[in-house]
Each structure stands twice: as C-alpha cells, then as structure tokens.
Design a protein around this nucleic acid. Structure first.
Lengths: 338, 338
DNA sequence: TATTGATATGAGATCGATCTCACATACGGA
DNA sequence: TCCGTATGTGAGATCGATCTCATATCAATA
C-alpha cells in the first residue's frame, strides 16, 4: 500500500551531500561543484528518483495541472477540444483535469471551488450560464489564469475563444431564405447558455433582414441531448402548418431532429430542409448528407491552451477576445419547399 | 497572481485557538470543547476557509485524484466511460484526471510515471499493448490501486472490466455464415491491442467451427481512425474476388468502412454485408442501419469506479476479472450474398 | 486524600522540495 | 600579506494540514 518514495533526502544521503546541495544539483540553480553535481545526478538515476510534485506544489502553491470544465465531455465538440488541450499542455509539463459541469451552474461553482483548493494552476471553461457568473468573475479577480471557450461571459476579465455564432447562424438562415423558405423552425437548447442566445440572435436578425416576422411558436426548446431533441422536433412538426425548414443549434440537437423527422416519416430535404450548427461525423453518413455551419474546431483547443500558458507564464496583457468565423458547408439537406 | 489563501492558521487566530485545536474542530477527531468547536466553525465560515488539498496530500502522500488513461478520449466509447467514472468518483470526493495514451506504449509509460509523481491515488487504464506491460505490473506490485478496462493484461494482479470480445465476434460471424457468407473480411486495428487479438480469435474460431479455412488476405489492418480505415477498406474490396461481408473491430473502423464502401459505389447490404463491434449513435442514422455487437457500456464505467474505490478504501481482496457479455443487435446491414 | 480516567488544548514534528542565510573556501588584485 | 569577490556547501525555515505527545483540568472512584 505504501508508495516507495525515494526522496531527495535519500539521494542526498547516497551522494554524501546535504539536501540543499542535492536540490541545487538536480534543479541546476545556485552554485554547485561539477564533481558534486555529477555525483548527485548519478545517485538520483541509480535510485530512480522522481521529485514529488505534490511537495513542489505545496511550496509553489500550484500544481502543474489545468482544469477543463466543459458542459459535457461526451459531446464530440468538447471531447475534441479536451484532446487538443491535453496535447498542448503536456508539451509544457502540465496535465489536464477534466470535470464536466453537466450544464449546471451549481455544479460548475462547486467544481471550481473544489479544484481551486486543489491548487490547479488555471482553467479552461465553457460557462454553463451566460448570466450567472459571479463565481467566474471572482476567479478572474483573484488572478487565477482562466480561458473561456465556446461561450463568452461579459464583465469577466479573461481571455476567450469562441466562434461567430450570430454570423454563422445568419448565413445559414440567409441560405434557407434564398432557397425559398419563410417558415423556418429553430431548435435550441437552454436559453441560459451563451451560444444559444447568440445563435437565436442570428436567427432573429436574419429573418428581420428579410422582412420575415419571427413566429415564436416555431422556436422549440429542448435539452442538448438526442432524446430530448427528438421529442421537441416531433412537437414542432406535429402542427398543421409545420415549418418547411429547421435549424438546430448543435450536433446533438441535429441528430435528434434527424431521428424525430424520420420517425414522423418526413423526408429530408423533400419534406423538410435542415441545417445544423456544428459539423459532426455523422453528417456525412446520412442520405442526404447534412448541410452544417462548421466551426474551426481544430484551432480552438490549441489556441486556448496557448493563451492559458501565456497567462501561466505571467503575462498580464489585456484579455484577448478571439472570435473565429464559421463556414457554411453545403451538402444535400436543403431544397426549395414544396 | 497570488492566491488569497485563508489557511488554518488564520482560522485558528480568528478563533483564538491553536492550529491543532482548529484542525480538530474542523475535521472532528480527538477531543474538542463544544463551545470551542462552534467558535472555530464560525470563524472558518466567516473567512471562507477551504482546506488546502495539496497540503493534505503531502501529508497523506496521495491526492484525491484518479487517473484515467484511455487510448483516445475522442473515441465515444472512452468518452462515455470517462463521464461515468467522473460522476461516480465525484460522489466520493475524488476528481478524474484524463490523459490519453494515444495508443502509444511509450506515452502510456511516461504518463504513468509522471502521474505517479503527482501522487494520484489510483488509475483506470486501457493498456495500449497486450504484451509490453512491465510498467503496469510494476504499478500493481507497488500497490497502486489500478483497474483495467476494455483490455485485460495477463500476469498483472489488478481488477479488470472487459467484455466477451471473442464470444461477441463469434456470434457476429456465426450470424454472417448463417446468412450464407463464407468470404468474410475482417478489419482490425493494431494487433498489439488486446481487444483486436481477442476479436480476431473469435473470427478465426467461428470460421473454423464452420469448416471455413481462414484466408489471411481477407484480414486488413489499419489504425483505429476513420481515414485509415477508409483506405484499408478500399484496399480490401479492390480485389476481384472481394469478400461478400465485412466485420469491423470498433466503431471508428466501422465508420471508415462505411465511407470506403460508399466511395467505391458498393451498397450495403446489397453488395456487401457489414457488422461492426461496438454500437454507436451513427449506426442508426445510416440507411440501412448497421448491425452491431453492442457492449454494455453503461455498466463498465460505474463498475470500474466502484472497484477502484474499494481498493482505495484498502480492500485487499483478490483481483476481480469481470467480463460482460455482448449482444448482437440485428439491424439492416446484413443480407444473403448475391 | 490520592488516583485514575475522560476531556481539552497547545507545542512541535512531520510530509518533501526548495529557498534563504550563514559560513566556508579559493583566487584574484592591491 | 590582506581584502574582496566568486564559488560551494549545509543548517534551518518555509509551504499548510495533521498527528503525536505533553500538559492541564475536572470529575469520579478507591
């Protein structure tokens, strides 16, 4: 049950020097005699010494660990970002601790508290709420390095990496309108979530731009999970004057819509046109393939990691608010309404 | 940049007691006067005291963090398990640190060393190799609690949770043979990986059981990634006497096969029948839907977490080797050969 | 009254790495 | 020869929580 625990003390004893000298030899700071340094190195190698990172952390006040708090690690979008973060951070000797908020502000708050007491060096966050963010503001105020991804929070002084949700959605709606659609359904997740708000804004703005009044009954709400999205889709399309097209705000909702429509015997794009926000593997496996608003997902994680590492190295530059453009990938799920 | 850091010392000062007494009051051990305990509690609350978990870890030698080392966090199978592990561990006040081995034994080795020096309390591993496992054996020998998932390693004394790879594969091959197939392709990932070996064994065993000799040229190897699987599929089906059916060893390979076959203009199940190991969302979105060997994925993570927690609580019971049965889910991707 | 035990508290040690400070040498120039 | 600086080393403090041990008080028992 006991760890073996070869400590600096052991190494020092083996090399016949004091702990201080051994530390100097291994971390190469201060003055150490060449011959002594060699002897210590050798002893350390021979004993298989590895510094206890917890002890180091106690002194420095920080563990070389970065926390990642996504809404849901099972969402491929976040899984991809987690992977990219991990790769970048590892290069700098940091590890990544992943703790999902499960889109609960309460859980997010608890997690952050608990992880702070763990001495994590910084955080990459996708805040569960666009408004209730005092805990994040506090984090930033306390000087804990922090990068927001996917979702931006106002009034918090920290870096953020997100995409142009509003523009991306507008482009998609424009495309639907250009194809003759005027009754366009909108399937979104909890309005608490930042991206949902911005994407809704893009939807409303685009419609307004075309002189189409927003019909609130065409906007369906569901949790971001396939099963819930199925139900919401069915509700939306059960009405007599159903929409001729549908826009979904993330890939899980798109999947739900796909299944919901299929269960109702509605064909894409013959009966309903569909565009989803966020590209996903599955979109090219369906028949027809799904037209989507793609995010530059491969850039988000590495950039967030780099921003965070700069902060960890003490950068006090003003917060950077990065916004990537999106790209409409036209496949086969849109046609003119019947 | 500095953490605020309200320490036990501050609380003790505020409550006019020694650090020792404050500690007793807060962790409720030893004797403390009722009135004193209350005063300390109050002071702690007022100051917003949170114990420094790094300092606790230094004393106890262990951080309340469990490491999860999957092959690839982007694989939905592992993402799901990560989620389930996290939920279970959080209940016991532990956090989960995820570090992908990216199917590299070298990286796995380095990660484990680095995470051990971090004082992690235990590990959940999906070993990258079925054979080269001295580092894992050492871990187990040193008494570090350890649970293997998905992949079992011989000669290592630790718990494991896996599925009946051989039986599941055999059932699928039997089903294909029952449908009249005799030339059945097999698309597998690196033979180093445990599950690949067992699934190959199931394939060979099933064929032998039906008196069909194994044609090595029908066995294709690719890395477990969609793009690589596409190429391997195309190679396999470019030959004149191509197989009439294909079995793929995981969901990423199945996706690759799907795309590869489509790019060649081969239709499922008309031209080729297909069964994949591991169920995945996408399988029900294709037309036809894909017949798969499903694993009880919702049980693996929670069980692994429970086994690990028992070890953390000091259980010295003999290692448990759990094997879940698989289930063949018949959908529409298999028909009789032309 | 003396003694035992339960209760209550504080001083100080401990975990392991690292940093400060004090104390040695050595070597150069004056 | 003497002093200043560069070099090398060790003793001990530090980070924060917790544990051991010593001590102190009070009550109940012998």
């Amino acid at each position: 049950m006991k760890q073996k625990g070869i400590t600096l003390k052991d190494v020092a004893a083996a090399a016949n020097v004091s702990r201080a000298t051994a530390a100097r030899a291994l971390s190469s700071y201060g003055y150490v005699g060449d011959e002594t340094a060699l002897r210590v190195q050798e002893a350390a190698d021979r004993l298989g010494y590895r510094a206890n990172r917890v002890a180091q952390a106690l002194r420095s006040g920080q563990l070389p660990i970065v926390g990642f708090v996504p809404g849901d690690i099972q969402n491929p979008f976040f899984a991809r970002i987690a992977h990219d973060l991990e790769v970048e951070l590892r290069k700098q000797g940091h590890n990544l601790l992943i703790a999902s908020s499960e889109e609960s502000v309460k859980q997010e708050k608890e997690l952050l508290e608990s992880l702070r007491s763990l001495g994590l060096r910084g955080f990459v966050l996708a805040p569960a709420s666009a408004t209730d963010n005092r805990h994040i503001a506090k984090l930033a105020r306390d000087g804990v390095p922090c990068v927001l991804i996917d979702r931006v929070v106002k009034d918090v002084r920290c870096d953020s990496v997100a995409v142009d949700n509003e523009g991306g959605t507008r482009e998609a709606i424009d495309y639907l309108v250009a194809n003759g659609h005027r009754r366009i359904g909108f399937l979104r997740d909890d309005s608490r979530i930042f991206t949902a708000q911005e994407r809704l804004g893009g939807y409303q703005g685009a419609l307004a731009g075309h002189g189409i009044s927003v019909d609130e009954t065409l906007i369906a709400v569901s949790r971001s999970a396939v099963e819930h999205a199925i139900d919401a889709t069915i509700r939306l399309f059960s009405r007599r004057d159903r929409p001729s097209a549908l826009f979904t705000v993330d890939s899980l909702m798109t999947q739900g819509a796909l299944l919901g429509l299929r269960s109702m015997g509605l064909h894409i794009p013959h009966d309903v046109s569909l565009i989803g926000f966020d590209d996903f593997n599955l979109a090219t496996f369906t028949d027809p393939q799904i037209t989507v608003v793609a995010q530059p997902i491969s850039e988000i994680g590495p950039l967030a990691a780099r921003l965070l590492l700069e902060r960890l190295q003490g950068s006090a530059a003003p917060p950077q608010q990065i916004r990537f453009p999106t790209r409409l990938i036209v496949r086969g799920s849109v046609s003119r309404p019947r």
